[in-house]
Write a protein that binds this DNA or RNA. Structure first.
Length: 643
RNA sequence: GCCGGUGUAGCUCAGGUGGUUAGAGCGACGGUCUCAUAAUCCGUAGGUCGCAGGUUCGAGUCCUGCCGCCGGCACCA
């Protein structure tokens, strides 16, 4: 039976980081595990999502054509995955020519079934997130990224998403396996239950995209073209539907709502499962470009090894929930679990076989209670891995390592070796066989998570069969052949010292420089404004903004809104200005009383929650962080203008 | 504001349908063996099980209220 799984098709506006690597590591693990379980073929698709106005602009900023820019970016992804040992089968680029055909086919199918219509859209659009902001006013910032939205008016094709509300709800209800983890399914259920709006799926005036059939000047909306790449990749092999889409929680809605609706509309089979994992935080904080705390997998892998990074992420983070990466936690877990645990067990077991049995696996059935423990371990680990609960599975497997270590101490083979009595020698045989056989089983279990390290231990055990071909049958006790010659013993996980962290920090800094250089605008080119950056303005432009010093005279929360404060600010006019500011989460109202703040005095009035806001309070903010108000160190009279 | 989740030893977390002294791993401390990567193994850790009530012979385990944290939606920057 085949098994087809996918990673997200990664958006090419940033180089791969530890978050994208995480998704991809898990996909690689699942692929190897499913192979062990006997699925055939097991096929993994990854790729790059390359269309959109934003990509087009980024390309322009780098003084490259979209083709060249995306080629460079997708090559970077491919290089990273190669460097990280990812065993993927297909790398699909949404700009691949064969992909156009699939997209058009999907569109035609939907249209033939009556789920596409032409309509006009006027509204706010965020270039950065490819997002239409339905209820936004002109000039409003994007709810996702905070960048200003742009007003667009387009005649577009719409997808009748609203027609699928019931069928989607029925899907979630009838097939709980479709969407995991459970709490994500509940979120999506309540989202869909609130009602769905039709979706504009084409764009005009963007040359960089897949042209809509017949309509030369339309291209497809990036999500309409991206999701279907999962099908393009395996069209020739007829592997659709996918058995698993691994995604991050940030793109859940596209995969759990839009995607199945598109497929329903086209009369195509639905994927079997969508699993949304959480984010990898850096020491409890969200990683983001603007915070400058994005970590990359290469520098970490170069110091501790790819496998150790994989192990850490999978063991430390409960799959499906957010998890935290920290250098010291990585080093600690490496030393405790890999060096002292698995590495040391392999080392002591193989060394004893060399010393006491001349490097040959002794003839014995092994100790029964350890065989039982191994069987129990396998059962529990299988259950955990099948449920995508990798941290639990690894915990169970490490439990067996602990049992063997204890068993070795109880039997004290170094004592038995001194006694030439046949009883002792037989017990020594049994002890060594037991340890080696249990190690073999642990090693087989470790393979999907840490392929290279498992391969090393496997070969040190002298196993004739390549580890890539093992199956669940190899997890049974007694498959280790007596008389087999073990290989040369060498440490698989050398202990790390504190210098490892310094080294990783150094390499991370170097990696950031490399990536910055790679994606920097070409030096000779005139610097076009990139998204998030600002174009230069003249002093006259600046003079248009009336910034004033004001003093807060009253502040209260706006009922029914978490983030809004209703403020009255004295800026030296007859009456204090009334304004509404989204700073309630950062500043309790009483803390603001009497505070001097900076106000944009000539902003167009706007009603928020029924209160007319006449101006704006100036605050600095970072993505995902709370706003911080601008203020003055010296005293300054109310009403003073900033210029 | 609405909906959902969650709050247990320094850290990460287990603790179906309520029942003797609340557990594991890691870290820390003490001890031990010597095959092994100063590893292993053994022992110790006295934690108001968020707070306050309630049901019950008996509650981390059920109910109510409150507080904190997280997520989704709304709202918003």
């Amino acid at each position: 039976m085949k098994y087809y799984l996918t990673t997200p098709i990664y958006y090419v506006n940033a180089a791969p980081h530890i978050g994208t690597a995480y998704s991809t590591f898990v996909a690689d693990l699942v692929k190897r595990f499913k192979k062990m379980e006997g699925f055939h073929p097991v096929v993994l698709t990854t790729g790059s999502d390359e269309h959109s106005r934003n990509v087009e602009r980024a390309a322009k900023a780098a003084n490259l054509s979209p083709q060249d820019y995306t080629a460079k970016m997708s090559a970077e992804f491919k290089n990273q995955w190669k460097h990280l040992g990812i065993d993927y089968d297909h790398f699909i680029r949404t700009s691949d020519p064969q992909h156009q055909e699939t997209v058009r086919d999907l569109f035609e199918r939907c249209r033939r079934n009556g789920y596409i219509y032409k309509g006009a859209y006027t509204g706010q659009y965020c270039v950065n997130d490819e997002l239409y902001v339905n209820e936004a006013q002109p000039g409003d910032p994007c709810p996702e990224c905070g960048r200003p939205t742009e007003t667009v008016t387009e005649e577009n094709y719409f997808f009748k998403l609203s027609a699928f509300q019931d069928r989607l709800l029925e899907l979630y209800e009838k097939d709980p396996e479709f969407l995991k983890p459970d709490h994500r399914r509940n979120e999506i259920k309540s989202f869909v239950a609130q009602g769905l709006n039709d979706l504009s799926i084409t764009r005009t005036n963007i040359p960089w995209g897949i042209p809509v059939p017949v309509e030369g000047h339309h291209v497809f909306y990036v999500w309409f073209d991206a999701l279907i790449s999962y099908m393009t990749a395996v069209k020739a092999e007829h592997l659709w539907p996918a058995d698993l889409h691994l995604i991050g929680k940030d793109i859940l809605r596209f995969h759990a709502v839009y995607w199945p609706a598109f497929l329903m509309a086209a009369d195509l089979p639905l994927p079997k499962k969508v699993f949304a994992h959480g984010w990898i935080l850096f020491e409890e904080n969200k990683m983001s470009k603007s915070r400058g705390n994005v970590l990359h997998p290469g520098p970490i892998a170069d110091v501790v090894g790819i496998d150790a990074l994989r192990y850490f992420l999978l063991r430390e983070v409960t799959f499906g929930q957010d998890g935290s990466f920290a250098y010291d936690a990585l080093v600690q877990r490496y030393n405790a679990d890999l060096a002292n645990g698995l590495g040391n067990l392999a080392s002591r077991t193989l060394t004893m076989i060399n010393q006491y049995r001349d490097g040959r696996i002794p003839d014995s059935a092994g100790a029964g209670h350890i065989a039982d423990a191994a069987k129990e371990t396998t059962e529990q680990a299988l259950e955990a891995f099948d449920a995508f609960n990798f941290s639990k599975g690894l915990e169970v497997i490490w439990g067996l390592i602990s049992i063997i270590d204890k068993f070795i101490v109880e039997r004290a083979p170094w004592q038995l070796a001194k006694d030439q009595e046949s009883h002792s020698q037989k017990l020594l045989d049994e002890t060594l066989y037991t340890a080696a056989e249990a190690l073999r089983i642990v090693c087989a279990w470790v393979y999907p998570v840490m392929p290279e390290s498992a391969r090393k231990i496997w070969s040190q055990l002298g196993m004739p069969q390549p580890i890539e071909s093992i199956t669940v049958a190899d997890l049974h006790w007694g498959r280790l052949a007596a008389g087999q010659k073990v290989g040369t013993v060498s440490g698989v996980f050398p202990r790390l010292d504190s210098k490892a962290i310094e080294k990783m920090l150094e390499l991370e800094a170097a990696e950031r420089e490399r990536l910055a250089a790679l994606f920097a605008p070409a030096t000779a080119a005139p610097a076009a404004p990139a998204p998030g950056e600002s174009a230069k303005i003249s002093i006259d432009d600046f003079a248009k903004v009336d910034l004033r010093v004001g003093q807060v005279v009253s502040a209260e929360r706006v009922k029914g809104a978490d983030k809004l404060l209703h403020l009255k600010v004295d800026i030296g006019e007859a009456e204090p200005r009334t304004l509404v500011a989204g700073i309630a989460e950062a500043y309790p109202p009483e803390q603001l009383l009497g505070r001097k703040v900076v106000i944009v005095a000539n902003l167009q009035p706007r009603k928020l929650r029924g209160i007319e806001s006449n101006g704006m309070i100036v605050a600095a903010s970072v993505e995902g962080g709370k706003p911080v108000l601008a203020g003055f160190l010296e005293d300054i009279p109310i009403g003073a203008r900033l210029k």
